[in-house]
Design a protein around this nucleic acid. Structure first.
Lengths: 239, 239
DNA sequence: GGGCATATTTGGTCTATACCAATTCTGCGC
DNA sequence: GCGCAGAATTGGTATAGACCAAATATGCCC
């Protein structure tokens, strides 16, 4: 029946990719259900799913659990070296950003944080967890730790907006240097749950350590992005 | 039989992850075959594979096609802002780097390249494709374009070593600024084939545009890394 | 129109089986 | 020890069926 020179699921993939590339299916639109996609070619559901997994890995489509597969919107451009907030740069790209604060508590500095902040173990820190969305799709979970002695009462403020501007305008905290670590990761457990994605979805973990002009660590931030939501762009002088 | 409060494949995942974390299986070692992993828990092969896919996504294991599943080595740290070659920083991390030149040809500048290099369409360029490995595992494919007028005869040199040092020592080309774009991607088609990985494996695409002190583009470089091989670390002054 | 219980649809998980091609192992001849 | 043919093993692909829980659609009551 089918050509043996091309894998069947790659053939199905190409068919769907064409319908997306050709404009028949537009960003945000739902694909036909897996069972509907079978009937066209007399192919097993498992094979259709294999094709969908490919397209998901490529970032062309994404899923809403038990609701369906949807065409992905374009990624946003993110420059972690800029001291500019999510709300600001997402909006500048014509998208609609949103932030939810999942939790904010005061914690005691543990060994790892003590080392990062050069503060004694037990020193008070604020720990903030937020979920950020673009056009109503959750795209990242972030976990922020701020030295409480530098920003007393921080968590009493509304943190659903820009943490950047709160730190700057209320506490006069500016950032002079940034250490940024990035690595491909899988979204699992807590992160997957909070983003409502299947465990194992590829992601990008971005870890930022922010220093002020005096070289003190003012903020330690770890973000888990879904892989299809961003493009990182950095412009730097070579050392 | 099994707890319904935990997905079965996640249970299998945990079991294997423990054997890796506990040191029973060490980096580079082969896992038991899929069919052997079934017998332990009376579980279908599809379920075992689902567990292996999870671990692969997390970067804990990787596969060699039709040979087996292996425990992943740790990632290398990569700083794209440094004008330091792959051979050098990989070795500095106690690993064994290798480079193969897949192809090197002179091409004519097309529209896209013309824009990047600010050169006329048709201007001569060198196009180099290389595969780079760490400890005998292919980790990235790169595609480099260099302005031929700045480095005449470049492709007559041996490019299996450091392109960096060839450009610097022979042509006196230094880099002052770097524009780096990174995005999570899927390794498919040519890239997947060259890296001998299954189509759809998560990866990281790193695109570098290198400028000299006069602001001329001297090199345009696109790298496709397998997701489990690297960690990007950048240190920068905030703008 | 809104609220609500119900039926349907949808993707998520799991089983069992089959065949293939690439790789790896085995054993023989030398 | 080496080379080589054949056998066995391994992961990759594909099928068909089943059941579940979450999400969505339906239709009724008010």
């Amino acid at each position: 029946m089918q050509q043996p020179d091309i894998l069947q699921y790659l053939g199905v993939r190409d068919g769907i990719a064409e319908r997306i590339g050709g404009g028949e299916l537009k960003a945000g639109e739902r694909l036909p259900s897996e069972r509907q996609l079978q009937v066209g070619g007399g192919v097993a559901r498992g094979t259709v799913r294999e094709a969908l997994f490919q397209l998901e890995a490529e970032g062309l489509i994404y899923r809403k659990d038990r609701s369906g597969w949807y065409v992905s919107p374009p990624p946003v451009v993110y420059d972690p070296t800029r001291w500019e907030g999510f709300m600001s740069y997402v909006e500048a790209q014509g998208r609609r950003p949103a932030t939810e604060t999942l939790s904010k508590t005061e914690i005691a500095c543990d060994g790892m944080l003590a080392q990062i902040f050069s503060r004694p173990v037990g020193a008070p820190m604020y720990w903030i967890r937020r979920r950020r969305s673009i056009d109503d799709r959750a795209v990242l979970i972030e976990s922020i730790v701020v030295d409480a002695s530098l920003a007393p009462g921080l968590i009493d403020h509304d943190l659903d907006g820009s943490l950047t501007s709160v730190l700057k305008s209320i506490y006069g905290i500016g950032v002079a240097r940034n250490k940024v670590d990035m690595r491909p990761c899988a979204l699992i457990r807590g992160e997957a749950e909070a983003l409502r994605v299947k465990s194992g979805l590829p992601g990008l973990s971005v870890e930022r350590t922010c220093y002020d002009a005096q070289g003190r660590v003012v903020e330690f931030d770890r973000e888990y992005w879904r892989h299809d939501a961003l493009k990182v762009s950095v412009d730097i002088r070579v050392r």
